Simulated assay, not measured.
Amino acid sequence: MVKIGSSLLVDGAGAVRREWLASVVGDIAARRAAGQEIIVVSSGAIALGARRLKLERGGRASLEDAQAAAAVGQVALSAVWEALLAGAGMTMAQVLLTLGDLEDRRRYLNVSATIDRLLALGAVPVLNENDTVATTEIRFGDNDRLAARAAQAAGARGVVLLSDVDGLYTANPARDPDARLVTVVEAVTPAIEAMADAGSGSGLGTGGMAAKLAAAKIAGAAGIHLAIADGRVMAPLTRFAETGRGTVFVAGEGAGRRKAWLAGRLTVVGTLTVDAGAEAALRRGKSLLAAGVVGVVGNFARGDVVAVAGPDGVIARGLAGYDAGDAGLICGLRNEAQAAVLGYAPRAAMVHCDHLVML
């Protein structure tokens, strides 16, 4: 999975950096010839559309401007990708995604199946957020996290975020001359997160280093390595392979695909708050029992994704075994007392360990 940001693909005048993009296509062709399958996440639709519509602030002055710019720009973006890939003997496939396509389990599986079939047919899937219909409440907000979530769906082994910086630094190198490049990150700890800068220096994109760390956590939950590499050079994938300069976030074994989907979700519909004893049991791999739940927030149904919060904050995510009403009735009760309150035999757990992932 390769993600390309707007600041790399589109110049300051709002035009495609076609020569640079052609060098990326050359990289893709070389990797495919070596036996790798490549999926692209390409930003740039809003920036390209804003130029054609003569919109201020790169089309990001308002949600309506961004949606209009995306509607125009996505056509232009796809045309450039299709022409360059075809010129290198490859077939481009466009896949536009919204947050709901990867948050809803059924739709997530549909996306997975579609990408798998496109790859089997030899196409190069080019993904982007469907900014024309996405709203503030139902959007990824940046393509770094979209790339990590789509990589989960595709069963990718690695994600490369091509950026206008060459990796994670100990501080913002534009402000601190003593900042040092961090080449390998074994875990995204609070100390690592403190190094991130949420700003987007170009003004064309969204997110920043904070979004890239969020993407690394999503990818890592699925056992997918993620790298940040300098995209400002020609043939950036070849350069990264030759020099290794950048930041690599090393993933562990990762959860199973269902649990990885849970861990990578960006939205939940409720929260179950638990006591310290229940938190300790969860960390030992146990299910969440109603007796350990001290609070229920949200309007969720059985099977919906909820957060589990301990005394110090959110610790897990899982599928609710009860709807919010029944969960509220039995929280704090031991198993033998629940039937009288519910009017039916209680289930084994509030959240079963098979449907729960620690964060």
Results as ranks from 00 to 15, higher is better:
53 L>W: 13
48 L>M: 12
67 Q>H: 09
16 V>P: 02
63 L>W: 15
29 A>W: 13
19 E>H: 09
58 G>H: 07
19 E>F: 04
40 V>H: 09
62 S>I: 05
62 S>C: 04
54 K>D: 10
65 D>G: 02
24 V>I: 14
27 D>G: 12
68 A>Q: 08
68 A>Y: 09
45 A>C: 06
64 E>T: 10
57 R>Q: 11
33 A>G: 14
32 R>K: 14
57 R>M: 06
46 I>A: 10
46 I>W: 12
16 V>Y: 00
15 A>C: 08
69 A>D: 00
34 A>E: 13
28 I>T: 11
58 G>P: 01
16 V>K: 00
28 I>Q: 11
29 A>E: 14
59 G>I: 02
63 L>M: 15
31 R>T: 03
14 G>N: 07
42 S>C: 02
52 R>L: 07
41 V>S: 01
47 A>V: 12
55 L>M: 14
20 W>E: 07
52 R>N: 05
38 I>E: 04
55 L>F: 11
45 A>W: 13
41 V>Y: 01
36 Q>A: 15
47 A>I: 12
63 L>A: 15
24 V>W: 14
30 A>M: 08
33 A>I: 05
21 L>I: 06
28 I>A: 08
17 R>K: 08
44 G>W: 00
19 E>W: 04
23 S>V: 05
14 G>L: 07
46 I>V: 15
18 R>T: 14
70 A>L: 05
68 A>H: 07
56 E>W: 10
66 A>H: 05
57 R>V: 03
47 A>T: 14
17 R>Y: 02
18 R>L: 08
47 A>W: 15
28 I>K: 12
37 E>R: 15
29 A>K: 15
15 A>W: 11
29 A>M: 07
28 I>S: 10
47 A>R: 15
19 E>K: 09
35 G>Y: 02
46 I>E: 11
40 V>L: 12
34 A>G: 09
27 D>S: 07
30 A>I: 04
26 G>N: 09
43 S>P: 03
24 V>H: 12
23 S>W: 10
49 G>Y: 13
22 A>E: 13
43 S>D: 12
21 L>A: 05
16 V>S: 00
29 A>G: 08
15 A>G: 04
39 I>H: 02
60 R>K: 15
26 G>D: 13
53 L>A: 12
27 D>Q: 09
65 D>T: 03
29 A>L: 11
35 G>E: 01
16 V>H: 01
20 W>Y: 10
24 V>D: 10
52 R>Q: 12
47 A>P: 05
46 I>M: 10
36 Q>L: 12
59 G>M: 02
25 V>T: 03
50 A>W: 11
64 E>G: 02
41 V>F: 01
15 A>M: 09
64 E>Q: 11
69 A>I: 00
66 A>Y: 08
58 G>W: 12
36 Q>C: 07
32 R>T: 08
65 D>V: 02
41 V>K: 00
58 G>K: 10
18 R>N: 06
57 R>G: 01
16 V>R: 00
64 E>C: 02
61 A>Y: 08
42 S>T: 04
34 A>V: 05
15 A>H: 15
32 R>Q: 13
15 A>E: 14
53 L>N: 05
52 R>K: 14
35 G>K: 01
47 A>D: 13
24 V>F: 14
27 D>W: 12
51 R>V: 00
66 A>V: 03
49 G>T: 06
39 I>S: 04
70 A>S: 13
